[in-house]
Design a protein around this nucleic acid. Structure first.
Lengths: 157, 157, 157, 157
DNA sequence: TTTT
DNA sequence: TTTT
């Protein structure tokens, strides 16, 4: 359960193809960068553009889906939580920090035609289970009875 | 899975105590209203206040927690999806519509001392599982190994 | 200023062309509907689809931009606040309620090629000023010095 | 105007009193850190707690309000955009990166009684103007109109 | 009434 | 460095 809210919501384009790896314990992780663009006027009244780059991390099945369907240039919606991790620079021994968005929901936007798409279903989205967050039963039990196989399928399409 | 985003996020105070019922199939549902307040200046420059009322619905364990811990006046954060349902007015036979927020995440805010609180843990929050939404594995499998008992407990405190 | 949070965030497709009108006081208003789609498995394990329809309202320049660039079928991101207004049914005299999203930010998504697009810049977004909300100076004054003409232009493209 | 969405939403407690400074050009800036807490069960099924720390930056009037009313320990809602800036470490000459949330909306939560509060209006919130974002007129001019009946009903149900 |  |  969260005690406090920690949420990031982004719409942007992938700057790189997703990079997939598998942890020693056998879990899938994917990393990619996402650019969000913003225009503003500077103090001289000239229209300027700023691009902000975000580091996205996804785990498990969501990682696999990102790896399979996302490509550099693809427009996506990403929702997740902010996480800053520290690591030691091998060369200097210094402690460094990186802030990442741990993705819990991803949606492909647009038609995918000019996005390097090759026949995927571009309007599908994917959401992580809330199992880590101490769940409290079904959201709407009229739709999904106890014992249904809802979560046992691997892929929804 | 969502195809598209449908999200509401509210911070406000309960206008009523939660009302709990159990469906014929044995599922818990809770309803309450939430007031969000906004101030603005009218065209005369005078500060005006507007209160917007929202109808909140929660299912399952989240319903039970709302029922147990929330009281009229309590300040909460509510996240959910918008849903408009129609029903027939018994007296006139007319079709009517109500828009509700189907709650998937709730957090109690503040210290609870002057909120009618009687000893509850005011900083706990609760989130629905994403089981209805075709999940894809654990959010961060390093923390919650396959086969762990994460979701088998009833209450997180 | 808001006292409380009242926010809706949607990604969906327009179900209708925007309908524009001008109020007696000369203000532009636009209305359109937005569909958000969600798939889920029913208790029998079958994939079901649900479409939720939302009523979107935009005012002022944002209304004009919606009117000019949006078309039925267009995929957009919409952010706004929930507002329920009541009106009297002319035929029955009954009081009725409608919940709408008062749009404060809109973005066109995708490439626009197969969306009825006719040469507009599809990646532009538009955001309402916060003038009604008791503002407190510039967000980042290094970028927009006092006295700059930031808000005097009508159209950003 | 944004082209793409870049939004962070946080509810947490200040880890430090806000630190205010004034830029050479005379603009106010405030910095503080915000802790968001999350509980989860580890793979052994034990309840663990994680605290995530966020660096918040506010400009202009919003900076002044944060400086005046916020204190270490205060619970707040913060909304803003993610921004990563780089700087050179004086000692090592290395390039380093920091991700901050440029605050555009802030709300004090709770009653403020045990939060070091000294008579401020604890339920006030503050929102930046959207002047940098190329605004398009009034959000809802019907509300600013003298004598409109829009807001006179109390309860919609 | 949208989209895939 | 916060909070419960």
């Amino acid at each position: 359960m969260a005690r406090g809210l920690n949420k990031a919501m982004l719409i942007g384009h992938l700057g790189t193809d997703p990079e997939m790896r598998v942890t020693p314990s056998g879990q899938s992780v994917v990393n990619f960068t996402l650019a969000t663009n913003e225009s503003f006027k500077d103090s001289g009244g000239n229209l300027q553009e700023r691009t902000e780059w975000h580091r996205i991390v996804a785990w498990g099945k969501l990682a696999e889906i990102c790896n399979q369907y996302l490509k550099k240039g693809r427009q996506v919606y990403v929702e997740g939580r902010l996480q800053t991790r520290s690591w030691e620079d091998n060369k200097t021994g210094e402690k460094k920090y990186t802030t990442e968005i741990i993705c819990s929901d991803m949606q492909m936007l647009g038609s995918g035609r000019d996005q390097g798409g090759q026949g995927y279903d571009n309007s599908t989205s994917y959401q992580q289970p809330a199992s880590r967050k101490q769940s409290f039963g079904n959201n709407n039990p009229e739709e999904s009875a106890p014992g249904s196989e809802t979560e046992k399928d691997d892929l929804p399409f």
